[in-house]
Design a protein around this nucleic acid. Sequence first.
DNA 1: AGCGGAACCTGTCGGC
DNA 2: TGCCGACAGGTTCCGC
Length: 271
Amino acid sequence: MPELPEVETVCKGLSEKILKKKLKELKILNPYLRTKIPVKIESLFLGRHVKKIIRRGKNGLIFFNCNYVIIFHLGMTGKFKIFLKKPFFEKHDHLFMKFGKSCYLLFNDIRKFGSIDIMRVPIDIICFRGLGHEPKVINSFANDICTKIRNSRRNIKNILLDQSIIAGIGNIYASEILFRSGISPIAKGNNISKKRLERMIIEVENVLDLAIEKGGSTIKNYSNTEGSLGYFQNNLLVYDREGLSCLICKNLIIKIKQSGRSSYYCRKCQR
DNA sequence: AGCGGAACCTGTCGGC
DNA sequence: TGCCGACAGGTTCCGC
């Protein structure tokens, strides 16, 4: 469940559990993710304390009191499972960690599209991995973003998914943002007025903020549900609603493929 | 240079 | 029941 709001929620959840705690044990169960988990991870972090945990785009960064940071990406199916006593390992568990006296973490990833990596500090968080602006601050960069979009002949859906322009939007929220903005996913960037893009930028903030809020409310179940989060489904206006009626005009929601990925929209409300 | 499509990997679901 | 293809919330690489 890994778009920006989910990663934000995971970072908050991890902070509650492991902030200031010492890493007591670490075991790589299966290093093969999108990138290989570095063997050095054990020697670099064992015995170190967690200083802070932040999110940048869809990446989570765990800072320790040493010169390295652990960077995780959830890919499509990555999750952290938290336990208060030592868990049994399961299929697709990749990394095991113990913090403090009794906090156990397992990174589990069925499809192996996630990653656990390390990086030396200091990190240039602005230019981190070529990511674009954080949605929280895009209002300050609205001109810059509008110009980029209006110079592009790509469709707006793909532009929203481009992490180097705005960081953190994924396939679900791209559809939701466009629905709320009244913009068709097949509209070309260079054909959308500045005014409409400014409205869209506000909706980016709205949708992600709301999703973080909802994610925050379910994170309470995080340790109980062992990471099986399923929040925000109830708040989706178009995603996965093919054939159902538009909540505004009652027209049928349609599903199309763009660059191999599903987009959902209302032909009448979105132009 | 910038774009769309394929590839990466595993599980699930619907159709036949 | 069983097999097969399509699909899933992401990113990167490879041609055109």
